[in-house]
Amino acid sequence: MKFDKRKADLLAVTIRKNTLRTIASKGTGHVGGSLSIADTLAVLYGGVMNIDPKHPEKSDRDFIVLSKGHCGPAMYAALAAKGYFDENILDTLNQNHTILPSHTDRMKTPGVDVTTGSLGQGASLAAGVAFADKLNESVSYTYLILGDGELNEGQVWESALFAAHNHLSNLITFVDANGKQLDGTTDQVCSLGSIEKKFESFGYHVISVENGNDTGQIYRAVLEAKEEKDAPSVIVLHTLKGAGIQKYMDMDNCHSVPVNKEELQDFYCELDRQER
């Protein structure tokens, strides 16, 4: 695995800029969860994953499953940055005939491995991909990204039983624990308790990342997960919803909010300042 923190941080800035740009093209979208997962996508697309933008379908590639499929804009931002498609396509989010629908769709977008959009389903899909890789004696990894609100779904826990029972150590799950879901905080809506302890009791190798918006901490967690050879790993990322943009971090909830094109330059400057 290649990793350069400076490059990863730069990629995270690009992903945030591209995310805001693509959502601004439509005027509104899932800003909060897209920004909170940007650093993880920067680590994965920045060298961790075995992928080739020139050959998006290459058979031995690692898979990524964005189960919180409504954060498609962040994935599109990363895919455009890596050259899967022209960056100008980012301005077509949710437009008629677009290849960038609000929820990730493998039949529409180059680089999207699995279609998601109904929360919880990506967990089983990812476990199935990892299971088949084991049967095929493939060395590929499957990276699954869940939202914390998504943990309300029972299917997540069915898949967790399945993954642990089958020793899917090639499945690395991230939980974007930004503490907020559509209708409020995760504690207000349906308390999750300790996400770490829950997964631990299911038989997972659990890695808690204190700052889930720090690319270095995320990378070290992935390295640790790859050392585990018997159980699936979960990396619980303690993130900020809307991370990177003060306006959205200050909101009670920025799950799905407007982004004005006029604000983009200010947002870009804000991100560039953080980078420096």
Partner: peptide, 19 residues
């Protein structure tokens, strides 16, 4: 096990890898 939702989802995932 008794988990039809996961069975279908995991099966669909396996088919992404040629199963």
């Amino acid at each position: 096990g008794i988990m039809e939702a996961n069975m279908v989802g995991a099966g669909a995932g396996m088919s992404m890898k040629g199963k």
